[in-house]
Design a protein around this nucleic acid. Structure first.
Lengths: 221, 221
DNA sequence: CTGTATAGATCTACACTGTAGAGCATGGCG
DNA sequence: CGCCATGCTCTACAGTGTAGATCTATACAG
């Protein structure tokens, strides 16, 4: 059908845009630059992607599509949940420029629904009462997105390496920093920290399971 | 001193910019618009704020400054931590357009350090081992920022009210949504959800306190 | 083969952006 | 009085998103 051709061109444009964002950053993502990469005039993009805002929404979709395989993994609920979470963070490292769009642009596409559905399923399988499932899904996805964005934007590790030095040098103004100077001196292991936070959230989840069995099931396994 | 005059003008400009963002959104925050609001030519802003990027960093500072009072509250550690968290979310509702800048622009200003220091202090007072304090601070601040941004950008509540209807209509594609149709039908209470997530994180925190006493202390109180 | 409809790309143009560079006015200080 | 720094203005330029009109090549009807 003709629809397929149209959709294929749209995808070409979107993947070109994503590649451009990966290489030169979001600021360099102009309609002209995308068009040049596709080998076409800027105005030629419009029938396919609508306008720039819609193009950014399209990028969100493309990113979500990369997460779908992780959403389809089999295994016990906690493995599935962990797989999705780690895939979410890995995606941020692969596309650091475009990733923050996930937090700023709400997505209601089929792929987005499928992803949330996989998380709902995992929580349901864990034994979480239905009333708590949407809330805990939001808690987990907020953690994954927020943590990954914190990493890639440098919120967790300000550029200046002397930052904690300056903070403790501030003296009385930052007493807790001074008290923690020992642990603040060594650079964090972001992989381990992400996993630890995820573990914490897993315990939150099992804590909301009525039967105490499942909590034991997780810690034994 | 003369420095004060310069700083005062800078603050005038930044508060004008923040007001403009509040009223017309981040997209409308152009140097020309800010200048017009201050009653001056665009180029007159540059000696004071550097350039647009620095102006946005200045907005981040202004936002953080609004959180400082909450960081100075007295009381037991969990009240202090809750005060900061709720202030962080309230800030998002007051400045929805500018708020996401907090997540995308790392801040190392004195005010930012003071805020983190207050969180460190609360965690230390809770009895959390020093090695876990920075990580748990990042967990909590990520939650607050991520949740608040999720709210204001509409990530949690996509505009289309028929969204869950469409999701369940998708049938086999979203089985978990279908299973949850009951709870998905009623609109969430965001205030309660934020508090519940915060409670969950408090339990995570007390769970990392070596002595089991403090866990009991929290739940009794 | 001719004529025509259609989808896609193009060209031009406009209002707007951030900001470099030069010039102008006003105040205090010697 | 001259000097000079400070704060502002004016002009200009390259780059942005995109509306509107135009061109072109392909596909199909007669």
């Amino acid at each position: 059908m003709a629809e397929q051709g149209v959709e294929a061109r749209r995808r070409e444009i979107l993947t070109a845009a994503l590649a451009l964002a990966d290489e030169r950053g979001l600021d360099a993502l102009s309609m002209r630059a995308v068009a040049a990469r596709v080998g076409v005039t800027p105005m030629a993009l419009y029938p396919h992607v609508g306008n720039k805002d819609a193009l950014l929404d399209g990028l969100v979709d493309l990113l979500l599509a990369e997460l779908l395989p992780a959403a389809r993994t089999a295994g016990p609920w906690h493995e599935r949940l962990r797989a999705i979470a780690h895939a979410g963070r890995a995606l941020a490292h692969r596309h650091p420029a475009a990733y923050p769009l996930l937090l700023s642009r709400p997505a209601v596409t089929p792929d987005a629904v499928r992803l949330v559905d996989a998380l709902y399923r995992a929580l349901l399988d864990a034994g979480v009462p239905a009333a708590q499932v949407p809330r805990l899904e939001r808690l987990v996805s907020t953690y994954v997105l927020g943590y990954a964005i914190g990493e890639i934007t440098g919120r967790f590790a300000p550029a200046d390496p002397r930052r904690h030095a300056r903070a403790t040098a501030a003296g009385g103004a930052a007493p807790a920093h001074q008290e923690l100077s020992g642990v603040l001196a060594q650079p964090p292991d972001w992989d381990a920290e992400f996993a630890a936070g995820l573990d914490d959230l897993m315990h939150v989840i099992t804590g909301h399971v009525p039967s105490a069995e499942s909590a034991r099931r997780l810690s034994n396994h």
